[in-house]
């Protein structure tokens, strides 16, 4: 039973603007980029006439790009894994019923989301740079002679990405754990399970959907991250997203850039699907 049930086209007028917007400015552009990846590279223009497979051939012929995809996936994988390991205890603690300062802690978890990604990445450059807070402090304390290489490498990118995406891991896991009836854990304890066993056998399996959603979200986000790798990685370490954007903005290679972007996205999507199958969960959208 729905309130205000009306017949005819009335209700469809409600969804029409959103539907039109998504169809024209999301679906069509995505189809267009697919077509673009088969365009002939242009001479002085973004793209030429006719269609070709040369953009994909160029990708597969050059191990540089293949390695870059592998590298990007690896960074995404590590970021996801670290987010999960350090995020789960926080999510767990935030859902404890007797937790003090919950509002404050929750606000802290959300705080990175409310600060622009450029600012957050900038913060990390201040911390991790050769003249940054960490290296300076260590030098002043006499612990190191030369600065530790914290920036302009994969390590720096991963540290910053973990920071940027940690909330996206913690929130779905929290949602998952909150959905678990607390009496289930109590029931397990009453049946003789220790606290650890109750956690391992009851809470952990039931929070899997949240964990899965968090992992997928963080993985996808880190693959397409542009600002952080670009600011922290500098010119030395480039992820695929940085290469793609450079190919488009700086060198105007639209067809090739499209092919690169699609190869990265397709690879990412395949990995997400395999991950979903492997964890055998019906994954729900957050």
């Amino acid at each position: 039973m729905s309130p205000g049930k009306t017949k005819g086209i009335g209700p469809y007028l409600l969804i029409a603007p959103a539907g039109l917007l998504l169809a024209v400015f999301l679906v069509l552009p995505y189809l267009n980029i697919g077509v673009m990846s088969f365009r002939v590279p242009g001479q002085g223009t973004p793209y030429g006439e006719g269609f070709t497979l040369v953009n994909y051939a160029r990708f597969f012929a050059d191990s540089f790009y293949i390695w870059q995809v592998v590298n990007t996936l690896w960074i995404g994988f590590l970021t996801t894994a670290i987010c999960l390991v350090i995020g789960f205890p926080v999510a767990w603690q935030l859902t404890r019923p007797n937790m003090r300062f919950r509002g404050l802690a929750y606000g802290l978890v959300l705080s990175p989301l409310l600060v622009g990604i450029v600012i957050r990445s900038y913060g990390w450059t201040i911390l991790l740079g050769n003249n940054g807070l960490i290296n300076r402090t260590l030098t002043n304390m006499g612990l190191i002679d030369s600065p530790l290489p914290l920036m302009y490498n994969a390590l720096g990118i991963i540290i910053a990405l973990v920071h940027v995406f940690l909330p996206f891991m913690i929130l779905p896991i929290m949602n998952g754990i909150q959905g678990i009836d607390p009496s289930l854990e109590a029931a397990a304890r009453s049946l003789g399970a220790s606290r650890t066993t109750a956690f391992r056998r009851i809470v952990l399996p039931l929070s899997m959907p949240g964990i899965q959603a968090g992992c997928i979200l963080v993985f996808v986000l880190s693959l397409s991250a542009y600002v952080t790798p670009s600011l922290i990685g500098g010119l030395k370490v480039k992820t695929m997203a940085v290469t793609v954007v450079d190919a488009l903005i700086d060198t105007f290679q639209w067809p090739f850039g499209s092919a690169l972007a699609l190869m990265l996205s397709v690879t990412g999507a395949v990995i997400v699907v395999i991950f979903g199958r492997m964890t055998r969960m019906k994954w729900k959208v957050a």
Binding site: F25, L26, P29, Y30, N32, I33, M36, V220, L221, L223, S224, A225, Y226, A241, V244, V245, L248, W254, G257, S258, A261, S265, G268
Partner: peptide, 11 residues
């Protein structure tokens, strides 16, 4: 991915 959406929309 926002980067893909951005590129698509640009074209």
């Amino acid at each position: 991915p926002e980067v893909l959406t951005a590129i698509s929309l640009l074209f």
